[in-house]
Write a protein that binds this DNA or RNA. Structure first.
Lengths: 181, 181
DNA sequence: GAGAGATATGCAACTTTTTGCATATGATCG
DNA sequence: CGATCATATGCAAAAAGTTGCATATCTCTC
């Protein structure tokens, strides 16, 4: 399972609580690997049991107490090993692409409407990613190695959104005439 | 579940056996929605029970008998309704992008090696998709509606591979110096 | 006739993800 | 004081996907 390793990766820099991690998985790392808080809390307990993480309860004033998880040496070793092993790419599954196969058989109007919505989503994502790049990753070559890796992940996001955006425009242009008639 | 609808989509043109469908899901539709034959056979039985498909045993000479599934009017209606409803985009999950966050903490060499392999995969996919486009979708505007939709799905594949390919090259260029030292 | 390979279909166990629900603390605002 | 929101953690059931195994027909080649 790779969720465990994604979590450990997020803990490389500093110990975090499940709540923190859940937010991490909604931004940064989450752009490329989504996980719900239910998944995260469950996985954290599993990893702590296995000895890859260490849990520490932290009492807080002004807010509910929390449990902070830190990477153990064993976890660190497992992570290294995972990085050295083969990767799995699970391609995106997109209803919309399947629906395109139905154009001509079903009404294309909702598909076009969906494309327009998605266009906006890609615009927003792209703007966000570019803002992050401009703020933190202006000159990739002068970054320390770790940041270069993160930069590349971000770059994948940017390129992906650019491509998806352009494709949406092209698709709308081609299908709009069908939807109007 | 969308697998059911992907299967029905594949049956829009003509009735197919589970085996045929499994191959369909390894090419055409399968570029955007992967499914194993185990999943497909299971789903086919479920759909037939629900009345969305009709199963017909076909005796064959020269090869094992098969079961051919056809879309029923009820299935057709369900498909229309699905097309009109909201779509879900499940973004890709890619170990490699998570591993990039580990560059600087773990040895980057295997990551670079993986990037090189992936570069080749993208090259192959791109060549394949382009071949299909050149053969069957040369002039998209003059295609009948149904084929236009399929063309757009193919185009999404082409653009995606182009982007991924270029990104791999950029990533290798940036990380190669780190891996050598 | 033995073996490999395409065709054809399936079970069972397991892992992973999704969905819906549940709970509790403390801050802030009206 | 009540409502709402951010913080913080979790259970349980269902759906979806993966993995490993199993079986059978028929063709073609050695």
């Amino acid at each position: 399972m790779a969720l465990s390793h994604a979590i450990m990766t997020a803990l490389l820099e500093e110990p975090l609580s499940g709540y923190d991690l859940a937010r991490e998985f909604e931004t940064s790392l989450g752009f490329f690997w989504h996980a719900s808080h239910q998944q995260i809390y469950r996985e954290l307990r599993t990893l702590a049991e296995r000895g890859w993480l260490e849990a520490e309860g932290v009492a807080q004033a002004g807010r509910p107490d929390k449990i902070v998880y830190a990477l153990t040496p064993a976890g660190r070793a497992a992570l290294d090993q995972w990085v050295a092993g083969p990767s799995r790419h699970k391609p995106a599954k997109d209803d919309l692409l399947v629906k395109l196969y139905n154009v001509g058989a079903s009404d294309p109007a909702p598909v076009v409407a969906e494309l327009r919505e998605r266009l906006e989503t890609h615009r927003r994502n792209l703007a966000l990613y570019r803002r992050i790049r401009d703020r933190h990753y202006r000159d990739p070559r002068s970054l320390p190695p770790r940041r270069q890796g993160i930069y590349l992940a971000l770059l994948a996001g940017i390129r992906g959104e650019e491509t998806a955006l352009a494709w949406c425009e092209e698709a709308i242009e081609l299908l709009a005439p069908l939807a109007e008639s």
